[in-house]
Design a binder for these strands. Structure first.
Lengths: 341, 341
DNA sequence: CTGAAAGCGCTTACAG
DNA sequence: CTGAAAGCGCTTACAG
């Protein structure tokens, strides 16, 4: 049988209440008594039963998720996964609050963070847009012992407990390797289309992409990045215009969201049929584009995995339980037509 | 506040014990009383707190995992993940027993299954080798209400509760698409190397692979499958011999394990440097081969994910809790040099 | 600084 | 067929 608090109390010759105080590092216990209890714990190999503790505490985890609003399919997918997780949260003593702020708007994000009632919040996960005020607001949370997890888009490591998302430089490199090999030696130009060059993840993907193209596929030339603001309508206009002006385009790397716009342009003229297309994020649109051969590869991060991982990490931080690193590593997933879910 | 058994008891005008009987579908309650309690449950929207129930029951999940022994790196990886999971099992009221049987030996597997003490086992996960006796043994488990999950390699659906693994036909198709595109239009022959054509997953991968090659890459020709018994030493001999005999080989699809042998042969002669290689399962060996350009792509299934998924599924079957389907779907992962973990 | 007793939401003998 | 009481492993006022 696993030892319990009773065994520890007996071994240490103290009461349950004192064992509990030591276990939870509550003040008001003589140093000598603390040592005594800790010895008993070590001797018996005692491990606390967290569900029993949570039951007694009537613990409820109140987690706040802050995500961007707007016409971005990937973010919609993320929100959808959050709603899914909410359904199961009844079984897990977890409350999820979903807050939305304007995309790429650091001021709005800071306002929300500053408005949080710290006494009501046990943990925060956010898709970060970096700014001084945002970083300060995060610091305030952490000083109040509220764990913070960044989702999809990171801030500097000192301001959060964990980052849940992919290495975007590596994602860009992956896109480039696929692009180079799929183009298959034909020389030509590569069009780059991002949401905004003010967002860290898009910048990083581009860096990774150009690294590999210039190092390993000298026959390919990356053109200036076009920005579609992660909006299908803007994207369509920008890309249509661009493809008409440029010659010899053999590949398109769509760095951000707005895939619907990309697809509309590419299917608008048979001339674009031979362009190799690598895009990001598996959504209904990109899934279909892969099936129909409009896209050749999609780099994805699993939004469901990210949501569940963020929840586990916040809980683990609160319960001070260990984390399985590999389970919390978000993969750079490659999808082609044949391995779609 | 969430309603508890007390609220239900009061609402239904019965005692806690009776509520519990109804909740757990124990016999010896008047139909009328059952209905009454169920009404109260519905009215209050009561959901049972499973950790409290497990605490009261002192429930321990005893899970048996049966995996093949032998020199197969992927299976070693699986075993390693199981040992990892064992470390965390203290926190989860879970005991994991790992049993090993000779690979591809249905008789040995049946013996182990038949030898299980059903009163000591709450759930079984196994890498299946199919045979009449194995199927009968599985049926016996399920008749005793012990959930069964197949891992990596499946049996017919009627004999298990869940399959945790990938769709191997789709995996083969994925390998073929990558192969075809990476070869890039050069005509030539493709060498196929499997562990054994008696194992379902290898057969299925081959089927998927040949489907796509013949339909979409007519310039490529699949040669007869060679068998290396998932053993690096055998594999090396078979492959070395084969590559010396055959001409015009532009690609190699390694369907099974034994990657170490494949790598040794391929690096033994510069003549093999231009062969496009697609293999299965990310291990230390294949990881390195990707980094060094010996392999071009590796199709993987995440052993850690599979182990955790099997545990969750067995638990959910016992607790009768819902399952998040997407979380339990094992991905056909594609790795190239750039998206390695 | 420390302890005895009650309670978290369930289940389990035992009695009737 | 049904219920009162004790208990699972922890925590929480309250008293001293």
């Amino acid at each position: 049988m696993r030892p319990t608090v009773h065994d520890v109390a007996e071994e240490a010759g103290v009461s349950l209440a004192t064992v509990d105080r030591v276990l939870n590092r509550r003040p008001g216990v003589r140093a000598k008594t603390v040592a005594c209890v800790n010895e008993a714990i070590a001797k018996l190999g005692y491990v606390r039963d967290i569900s029993a503790a949570n039951l007694a505490k009537q613990r409820v985890y109140n987690f706040v998720f802050i995500i961007p609003e707007g016409p971005n399919s990937f973010m919609h997918g993320l929100e959808n996964e959050l709603r899914q997780a909410k359904l199961y949260s009844a079984f897990e003593r977890t409350n999820l609050d979903i807050l939305k702020v304007r995309a790429f708007d650091a001021e709005a994000l800071a306002n929300v963070l500053e408005g949080l009632d710290l006494s009501q919040v046990s943990g925060v996960a956010l898709v970060a847009t970096e700014s001084e005020r945002v970083l300060e607001a995060l610091l305030r949370l952490r000083q109040a012992n509220i764990p913070v997890v960044t989702l999809v888009s990171d801030v500097s490591a000192a301001h959060r407990d964990h980052y849940v998302g992919i290495d975007n430089v590596a994602a860009g490199r992956t896109a480039a390797s696929l692009m180079g090999r799929f183009v298959g030696g034909r020389p030509g130009k590569i069009a780059l289309l991002a949401g905004s060059m003010l967002v860290r993840d898009h910048v990083e993907r581009r860096v990774g992409f150009e690294q590999v193209i210039s190092a390993e596929f000298p026959e390919l030339d990356c053109l200036t990045v076009q920005e579609g603001r992660d909006d299908a309508v803007v994207t369509r206009a920008v890309l249509a215009d661009f493809l008409e002006r440029e010659r010899d385009i053999v590949g398109l790397y769509s760095i951000g969201a707005g895939n619907r716009g990309v697809i509309e342009v590419l299917t608008s003229s048979p001339a674009y049929g031979s362009i190799v297309v690598v895009a990001h994020e598996l959504t209904d649109h990109s899934n279909r584009a892969l099936r129909e051969g409009v896209f050749d590869a999609v780099i994805n991060q699993d939004a469901g995995h990210e949501v569940r991982s963020a929840i586990r990490l916040l809980k683990a931080a609160i319960d001070e339980t260990p984390v399985i690193a590999r389970q919390e590593t978000i993969r750079i997933e490659i999808y082609i037509r044949d391995n779609l879910l």
